[in-house]
Nucleic acid binder design. Sequence first.
DNA 1: TAGATTGTTAATCGATTAACAATC
DNA 2: TAGATTGTTAATCGATTAACAATC
Lengths: 221, 221
Amino acid sequence: MKDRAVSEAVVRRLLKYYRVLNILDNKGVDRISSGQLGKRTGFTASQIRQDLNYFGGFGQQGYGYHIKTLKNEISSIFGLDRKYSMVVIGAGNIGQALAGYPNFSIRGFNISAIFDNNPAIIGKHLNNILVRDISELKDFAKENCVDIGIIATPAGTTEMVAAQLKEAGIKSILNFSPYDLFMEGIIVENINLIDSLYTLGFKMKNGNRFKKSAESEGIND
Amino acid sequence: MKDRAVSEAVVRRLLKYYRVLNILDNKGVDRISSGQLGKRTGFTASQIRQDLNYFGGFGQQGYGYHIKTLKNEISSIFGLDRKYSMVVIGAGNIGQALAGYPNFSIRGFNISAIFDNNPAIIGKHLNNILVRDISELKDFAKENCVDIGIIATPAGTTEMVAAQLKEAGIKSILNFSPYDLFMEGIIVENINLIDSLYTLGFKMKNGNRFKKSAESEGIND
DNA sequence: TAGATTGTTAATCGATTAACAATC
DNA sequence: TAGATTGTTAATCGATTAACAATC
C-alpha cells in the first residue's frame, strides 16, 4: 500500500484536496467523506481514496476523514511544515515581479536574494531584497541553505544558470524560461508560458476535439 | 484516424515536437524520422507516429517527415499562423512583468492593453502599453477583437474578473492567480505558481517515490 | 530493387473506477 | 445495532508500445 511510486497526476490531485481542506478547515468544518471531497474537486470518491492510500490510511470507516488531520498529513507529505529559502536569478521583468509577489512568502517560500550580472542593478533593493552579483551565488547559497533557485534570465542562458545553481548545491529549480530544462541531479519544474499560450490557441481552434479533464463544481470560495 | 478527441498529454507533446522541428529547420535540416524525433524528445517513435496521425498522415514511408511541412502542419493545428490580441487585467507586479516580456509578441501574441481599477496608474504606459480603466474593457475588447485575457489581479478577484472577460466576448483566459478557475463557456489555462513550488517540495522530500516522465537527451540547442 | 520508415491494428501496460468486506 | 464509509482488491478503461503490412 505504501511506498509505491506516484505519478505527477496524483501529486496535482493531492494539492487540490489540500486546498479544499484548508478552505473547509477555515470555515470550521470538521470532517469530510471521499464522496463529498469528490464533489468539490471533480474527482471520483474512489480515486481520492486510492490517492490517499498511497501514503497511508488517514480515514475512518463510517466517518470519513478528519479535516485537520488529513490537512496536516498532506502538508507533511509535501514538506509544507517548514520554510524554504529561494533565490531568483535575473533581476529583469519576471525577477522583479517575483520579488514583489506576496503569495510565496505567505506560504513559507521566501526569496532571500536576487542575482544578476548587470552592475547597474547590483546593490539595489527590490522589495527589500538585495540584488547581488551572480559571482556570489555559490557562497551565498551554502551559507544560507538555499533550497530553490528560480531562473528568470533571458533566453539562451538557461542551461548555464542551471549549472551554476546545481554547482552551488541548490536542490531544485523553478524555470521560467521558454526552454525546457532537464538536468541530472537537480529537480526541475518548468513553467513554460509560451506553451500555455499555444495550448490556448489549440483549444480555441480545436475546442470540440479536446478531452476535458475533471471539472469541479468549484473548489474555491 | 482523424477527428478523434485528443488529450492534454498529446497537445503538450506536439508542442515539444514543434520546438524541435523549429530548431532543426533553422539549422537547415530537411527531414526527420519518428525515431530521430523520439531520441530528441524522449518519447517513443511509436507514440510520435500515433500523435501525428490524430491529425493526418504527414510522413512518407521510407523517408520520414519533411521538417518544413510538418512544422507548418503543427503550426496550423495550433493556430500559430495568425496573430492574437491579448489584454492584461491588473497592472501590478505580474501585469508589469508580462507587459515587458518580449517572448509573447515575438510569437504573435500581442498585449494590446492593460486594465486596472487604480486611478493612480490608469493613463500611464507600461512598455508603451496604455493602462486603461477596467470599465472600458468591454468596449475595447469588442473594437479590438481581443482573443485572450490574462488575469494578473490580487487574490479574491479572479472569478469576478473572469466573468468580466467572458462578458466582454473574450474567448480564453490565462489565469495567474493561485485560484483554480473553471468557467463554462470560456477556455482557461491556470498557471498556479504555488502548486509548482509545492510540487518541488514534494519532489525534494519524495524524490525516490516519484514516477519520472520521459526525459529527452536535450531538445533545445 | 532493397532498405527504410510510415500509418495503423493489435497487445500491453498503467491508471481509473467499481465493488465489497471490514469496521467505526 | 444499523448506517456509513473506509481501505483494498478486482474490473474496466484509456493510453502507450509493439508489430507489421504497405509503400516510398
